[in-house]
């Protein structure tokens, strides 16, 4: 199955991003495809390259980055939501790209299932 994923909350503050990551990884391990992960609202903060969590904690941003590297998952950050929150092209960790909300709607059209992670 082809999944689209929407992440609505920022890293560490909320579990949504962790859950979305684990869902995506489990789906890929089972042979499914992740069409796109779209980061919206505070979810755009998952794309920052400036995050440095304590070394004994998981690294949420690096997890996503590795998923993109290993499985070519398309990680898209909403431009409007990002600009509001100081996430611009220069802030992005490798593996993420900035684009418009149209990418979310398009994922909804193309994916078999759209799954939202947030409150």
């Amino acid at each position: 199955m082809k999944f689209g994923i929407l992440v609505n909350e920022g890293p560490y503050n909320h579990q949504a991003s962790d859950s979305a990551y684990r869902f995506a990884k489990a789906a890929i391990d089972k042979g499914h495809e992740i069409y796109r992960v779209f980061f919206y609202y505070d979810g755009v903060l998952n794309a920052t390259k400036h995050s440095e969590p304590p070394s004994d904690d998981r690294n949420v941003i690096k997890n996503w980055q590795k998923l993109a590297e290993d499985h070519k998952v398309d990680l898209v950050v909403c431009v409007a939501a990002g600009f509001r929150r100081g996430i611009v092209e220069d802030s992005l960790a490798p593996g993420f790209r900035i684009s418009g909300l149209g990418q979310l709607i398009e994922a909804g059209i193309q994916a078999d299932r759209m799954v939202t992670f947030g409150d």
Partner: peptide, 19 residues
Amino acid sequence: TIYALEVLEMVLISAAFDQ
């Protein structure tokens, strides 16, 4: 919270996709 405003932004973009 900003949720309502940003949902509205999603809605407006969706209009361009003839859904």
